[in-house]
Design a protein around this nucleic acid. Sequence first.
DNA 1: TTCAATGCAAAGCTTTTGCATAAAG
DNA 2: CTTTATGCAAAAGCTTTGCATTGAA
Lengths: 134, 134
Amino acid sequence: MKYHTRQRDAVLRFFMDHGDRCFTAREVYDAVDAGEATVFRAITALTESGLLKKYASGSGRGDSATYQYNACGSRTDHIHLKCEHCGGLIHMDCSFMATILAHFLDEHGFAVDCGKTVIYGLCENCRKEEEPHA
Amino acid sequence: MKYHTRQRDAVLRFFMDHGDRCFTAREVYDAVDAGEATVFRAITALTESGLLKKYASGSGRGDSATYQYNACGSRTDHIHLKCEHCGGLIHMDCSFMATILAHFLDEHGFAVDCGKTVIYGLCENCRKEEEPHA
DNA sequence: TTCAATGCAAAGCTTTTGCATAAAG
DNA sequence: CTTTATGCAAAAGCTTTGCATTGAA
């Protein structure tokens, strides 16, 4: 990762332009003009640098990992909420977070790893869609 | 899953006997006397029934999913904390949980899916080990 | 000119499937 | 006796690697 290339720029730009969605390596490969191995190498590098967030699906046949642009980079002081319906990534940056983390630590002796933790559920919009008669 | 077989019993018993740890399908296959496909079929069935919890690692080559016994079965009203160091699974069944879920819902419009969410971090014992001079 | 990045094709792993056989009920 | 589970081997799919070539600085 010492030189600057057209392919790597294209991969990063693709993720930045669709920051609200997840993509498999295959989808990125289909979207940008670069070889398959190059796409994997670029995605791996971006993930390691913190610019991409990786979501591992079930492993093995027919189930590939997905990646999403992570605007906050390597900051790890807030929790991510991920909507299971629309795939949106919400950055929970509110003050109550500190209270939650303190509770886990004080009452359960558990130090939360914000960088690795993702809370799954349904976001506001998708809840409305899924329960039209509530 | 209509008949009762020695192989499926063995797989379930293996997980129950080591409820504190995660195993890959390969490890289970090495430990119990059953074919590879049978092990996968048994694990899949147990996971679907809620008796096993699945942790998907990165997909593809060299990275396999792991499974762990989930004593609480299909109950989904509490959150799981997983220690990244010892692999232990903590069932957070305290009353503050309701407060947390309410906050997510009221302030962020986000309905947490407890069944799918796992909070990663370091448990009490492992924190002490990792920071001997604190 | 030099050293890193690309791309293709081949290799590697995990998981699934097909099908004949064995076992459960 | 009928129906489901097993097991082997082959297939499938995602990701990585080797190596010659291209491109960046």
